[in-house]
Amino acid sequence: MAENRKKSIHTNARKSDALLQFLHRKNTVKIFPDVTVVKIGGQSIMDRGRAAVYPLVEELARLMKKRRLIITVGGGTRSRHAYALAVELGMPPGVLAKLGTSVSRQNARMLQLLLAPHGGVYIPKETFDIIGLYLNTGCTPIISGMPPYEYWEEPPTKGQIPECRTDVGTFLIGEVLGAKNVIFVKDEDGLYTDDPKKNPAATFIPRISVDELVKMNLPDLVVERKVLELMKNAIHIKSIRIVNGLVRGNLTLALENKNVGTLIYT
């Protein structure tokens, strides 16, 4: 009795099974350790149309011949429009997350059509399990970047915009697969102390740890804040790279792990 009390009454109530003692993790397997996950930005790349997308498609097509890639695609302007409308209508973040999913799916489909001649295959999340089939036949899976949380999106700490968007979804794909690396292709050279589009005094940061970055508490960030939080608990992905996809060859350099863009590491 005294022994029980020490433990708390809930211990037995909730976890009565003996299995619990086996609930500890051994070395987590890397499912696709040679694969690189590349995210193509929605607003930063796709929304710029032909001028930004065509050269990247060319570069990707070349890279897809030599390397195993998984490509994810962001949302962008149409997501923002849908979010603005939904916020005005008083919609909860879970509904916004579902709306955002559609846009990133549209972009993934567009990019897939352009990459189809080179082996680009659109993968709905429901068939994520057969991704190996495509990779092993030399094809490149192309997935919408949004995580499948939708109505189950947690309410954000502030505001109505879902905290887990296409950067988070991309990072988590790399993490669960134990991928080689995760690269974010955007329209900035990497991380700045502020949004360089609005603040010309913003300075470039080529390399920074997650802890330092969180401590800086920057007003704006080139990557979703939630990614930094998740990186702290990551088992496989210890760094992410952000590169400017408007500069030809940057993605190739990043895939070769050369010093380009910004590296954020734990």
Binding site: Q43, R80, H81, L89, M91, P156, G159, Q160, I161, L221
Partner: peptide
């Protein structure tokens, strides 16, 4: 429409304390 969704001011601006109940 071009605003950064990561920006703190945007997060603040979109705060809707009264959401519609579905």
């Amino acid at each position: 429409m071009k605003e950064s969704l990561v920006s703190k001011t945007v997060q603040q601006k979109t705060h809707q304390p009264r959401e519609r109940r579905i």
